[in-house]
Amino acid sequence: MTEPHFEREVDRSHMKVSDEVAIRIENMNKWYGAFHVLRDINLTVNQGERIVIAGPSGSGKSTMIRCINRLEEHQAGKIIVDGTELSSDLKNIDKVRSEVGMVFQHFNLFPHLTILENCTLAPIWVRKIPKKEAIETAMYFLEKVKIPDQAHKYPGQLSGGQQQRVAIARSLCMKPRIMLFDEPTSALDPEMIKEVLDTMIELAEEGMTMLCVTHEMGFAQAVANRVIFMDQGQIVEQNNPHDFFHNPQSERTKLFLSQILGH
């Protein structure tokens, strides 16, 4: 959709992929009623990887990452996050969710709470961190996303880009080891996309493990170490960004890339 438009060079010095497995998905299948949404997904994500997932709408990419923190239930196969297998066991779900942060397309900030309260709610009630400490952490991350002065405003008073950065900070306050991004820039006006992408790049530079569903191919080329292309509920192709964009193998990928970059 857009060519890379980052003025600065991405600092790759901390982007290290370790051998430690962060997420392992084996033969995962999911149905909505009779409709087979995810077909035989196999994916291993190591600690420190930055993966961009692309594909046409309805290809199951959002559903797949929503399975990783069990916002959606899978019906066959295994999902293991940081050594914890996702099952109907509530304890496991709680454990996974406290280690996996998620950023949504529509921000989903809590409109009745201030920015600061949005950021401290989960640390206080889930992590059971003293309030003072939680506020300090929240202010630290709000500074990182460059909106500390808005801390006492309500989400409705912020622009879309600012809200999405708050949403990222809110997730970071839980100190997650993995971050999931579900089309974080799709609902934003063009001039706000950059500020959100910059925040995400900074996060990548610090070595965060990231899975990102996005159409921002510039971001994929600059940051990702792997691009996954999905269609009809299955992984069709994956490769490093350079080869993925310059030498796509499957016909579906070529078609998709020509549609998204072609004009």
Binding site: N69, L71, F104, H106, N108, F110, L121, A122, W125, R170
Partner: peptide, 21 residues
Amino acid sequence: SKGQSEAASALGLRPNRTMKL
């Protein structure tokens, strides 16, 4: 919206807390 409870779940809040908070 459904997104509100999803965001709360994604942050690790249990359903009863999500309801209350």
